[in-house]
């Protein structure tokens, strides 16, 4: 696009692109704005855009009333726990497939991807019953295992595509120097693989944080994360838009920021390396 572009065209495109961006972003912007309104201003007709009495009372109310903190902690436990467990299982597997590939490696990878095709509802009944019988309903550990398993194919794939890019000659050189398998992994491979592992962590935290099938169906209070906390606002109980907005803003802010930082890696991870 380095060729001569008329300034008028560029300005026109700027207006159009910003308009589209604003329109798509508007529901989020509106939520953040509403979170700073009083409940009365939140339902004012006509709506108040920027001129209203800015207040942080909703944030205070959320943190006090509805044990928001325990939901937040559960979201953190679940997303970090499932990510850590997933990495523990996936890093060795992805390493082996990237550096000691066999004829069947591609089949194994495709098979792993195919487990993602299985609809969650096909496993819902037995998981519910197993969880009931083993007292795992509404437990963090049970949910961590489930969240780890549903995202494991994505973690393996993503790590695999990153590991593939590390030149094999470096490993061979390390082996010539007599490095053991453990040393090879910890001292040669890991430093080179860290960026890829970091992106994988980010993507998996995003996916686990926003998961809303298993978390809604397998928890009630003890292990319920923020997605379940927000869902509890769905039953109408008077005017609650401002508080819903404050809770929503708190729930999405950390992930939005992480997501904005890792947008490029996101493409790779979610397309299993098919689009870079």
């Amino acid at each position: 696009m380095a060729r001569g572009i008329s300034p008028t065209r560029k300005i026109g495109m700027t207006v159009l692109a910003w308009a589209v961006g604003f329109l798509i972003f508007f529901p989020i912007l509106w939520t953040v704005l509403t979170s700073f309104k009083t409940e009365l201003d939140a339902i004012a007709i006509p709506p108040k855009f920027l001129v209203f009495d800015w207040t942080t009372e909703n944030y205070a109310a959320i943190q006090e009333q509805r044990n928001y903190f325990s939901f937040l902690m559960n979201s953190i436990y679940l997303s970090l726990g499932s990510t850590a467990l997933g990495l523990l299982i996936a890093i060795p597997a992805a390493w082996a497939m990237a550096f000691s590939p066999t004829k069947r490696t591609k089949d194994v990878l495709l098979w792993m991807l195919s487990t993602k095709m299985m609809p969650a509802v096909g496993a819902l009944v037995p998981i519910t019953i197993l969880f009931r019988n083993f007292g795992l309903l509404d437990s963090r550990i049970g949910l961590i295992v489930i969240l780890c398993l549903i995202n494991l194919p994505i973690i393996v794939w993503m790590l695999y595509t990153y590991f593939k890019e590390i030149p094999g000659e470096i490993l061979e050189a390390a082996r010539m120097d007599g490095a053991s398998l453990v040393k090879e992994i910890t001292q040669v491979l890991t430093p080179m693989a860290l960026p890829g592992i970091a992106s994988t962590i980010l993507l998996n935290v995003i996916l686990a944080w926003n998961e809303a099938f298993w978390t809604l169906l397998l928890t009630t209070t003890n292990a319920a994360p923020l997605s379940a906390f927000i869902a509890s606002f769905s039953s109408p109980q008077g005017n609650f838009y401002a508080k819903l907005s404050a809770a929503s803003t708190l729930a999405i802010a950390p992930i939005l920021i992480i997501g904005w930082f890792s947008q490029k890696q996101l493409v790779r991870g979610l397309t299993f390396g098919a689009v870079k």
Binding site: G21, I24, F25, T31, A212, A231, Y241, S248, I252, W260
Partner: peptide, 22 residues
């Protein structure tokens, strides 16, 4: 780009309730 990308990071329950109510 950041503006357009943002909705993807909104958790499903938030997205649905914000649209439903607001």
């Amino acid at each position: 780009r950041l503006l357009v990308l943002a909705p993807f990071f909104v958790m499903p329950t938030v997205a649905a309730l914000v649209w439903k109510n607001m």
